[in-house]
Write a protein that binds this DNA or RNA. Sequence first.
DNA 1: CACACCTCTTGAACATGTTCAACTAACCGC
DNA 2: GCGGTTAGTTGAACATGTTCAAGAGGTGTG
Lengths: 251, 251
Amino acid sequence: MTGVTTAAAEPAEPQPDAPTEAGTEAGTAKPRRARGEQTRQLILETALRLFRERGYAETTMRVIAKEAGVAVGNAYYYFDSKEHLIQGFYDRNQAAHHAAAGPILATEKELAPRLRGVLHAGIDVNAPYHSFAATFFKTAAEPTSPLSPFSRESAPAREAAIAIFREVVDGSTAKLDPELRKELPELLWLGWMGVVLFWVYDKSPGQRRTRRLIDGAVPLIDRLVSLSRLRVLRPALRQVLALIETVRKDD
Amino acid sequence: MTGVTTAAAEPAEPQPDAPTEAGTEAGTAKPRRARGEQTRQLILETALRLFRERGYAETTMRVIAKEAGVAVGNAYYYFDSKEHLIQGFYDRNQAAHHAAAGPILATEKELAPRLRGVLHAGIDVNAPYHSFAATFFKTAAEPTSPLSPFSRESAPAREAAIAIFREVVDGSTAKLDPELRKELPELLWLGWMGVVLFWVYDKSPGQRRTRRLIDGAVPLIDRLVSLSRLRVLRPALRQVLALIETVRKDD
DNA sequence: CACACCTCTTGAACATGTTCAACTAACCGC
DNA sequence: GCGGTTAGTTGAACATGTTCAAGAGGTGTG
């Protein structure tokens, strides 16, 4: 849970401003008025609830506004577009994934189970939103969208996600090539994006095919990572790393 | 079910309007149908041209209709939605890719250059539509959309695409594990989807990063395919194939 | 207190994808 | 030729995301 969640049972309390301005929230300035933040949260909560209840496309901005008891234009004062409401969902699930991964990362020390646990935790967290996620995935896929996982706007969220996989690697007992170790977290995150992609398309009951994919792919990755220390595979590994380097240039 | 776009085996060329009802129909008289088909083509041509000229989002259905000289409702008689116009683009580029790959496949006999040639040909064909493709990709990404490359509706197009990669493999001199040989075309197609994904997000001038990705990835794939015959890697290969098998179950 | 200012709120207006009932015209059976 | 059937066509009407000029309400300053 982030500290932002609750829909505030308390009326705006004399909490005028924290000792430090500590406005680590998304971008915009953080003046002393808390009233706006309350409205913002109200709109976001309402929107996410409606998305879950009736789906993204079926939830109109007018309904969100009406249900939240504000004018439609007010929603646009806080969120640039309907899509931007999704960012809230995004951030929240990101945090939930991190929290859910905690226990496994604290317990397990071997690479494979760590990775497996983190991946399953990610699916667990997202499971309740599978049908909704499918529709909103569409907007996230648009390259020009700020919601794209590769966009500059979602860089913080992306970094946070990669950090989870860095913890998977760094906290493990696995011995691996130092250069590979450096790149592995991002590669694993990329793999995770692939799993999510697969999951979004997975129509099997309970998305069990995705579970099977994870269970099958993790040992494979584990094996490949181990094999990468073999002499025969050294040039191939170098080739992979060089490719990553080359492709990454001028972005 | 085939017969989506029958005579589409040619590279996409503007093809100025056929002489208006001159000698259009010969023996197989479907004059009734022919008129509709003509309108359909006219709308599609107009739409694709406008998409290229001004982008997908910026091209309104009203403008398409006006430019084509028909009523807006008429476009909806032939195409279920604006997105469905994209299917035309899809089919056409698929055919163009096949055509563009022809010379390389006829000339080259080694796996790596064959694959490289086919991939570059694919990018060549799509290059003029890069900015438009980004938006189109958004639509294709939606799992419920018939335009998704994984949907049942696009199975024919998908099969056609995989067939290109089957030709890449089968026509090559490369010696490889028989089971791998069976799976490789689909895997390469999946890789091609990945390249397309990368390309869509590639904002470098002329999408040169994608070119570099291809040039870097092809030798790597080539090397891995060769290495797969090594004894040490035999179990890993089996593991990969088993994973594919497992995941594919109940779809 | 008056005034200015700034955050926040409003709802009508606008743009665009989509639908629909009505209309036209070519064809077919008589 | 006549009436009916059906493919083809129309444009107004509708739904929804988004914008915008105007106003409300509080906060600080003179």
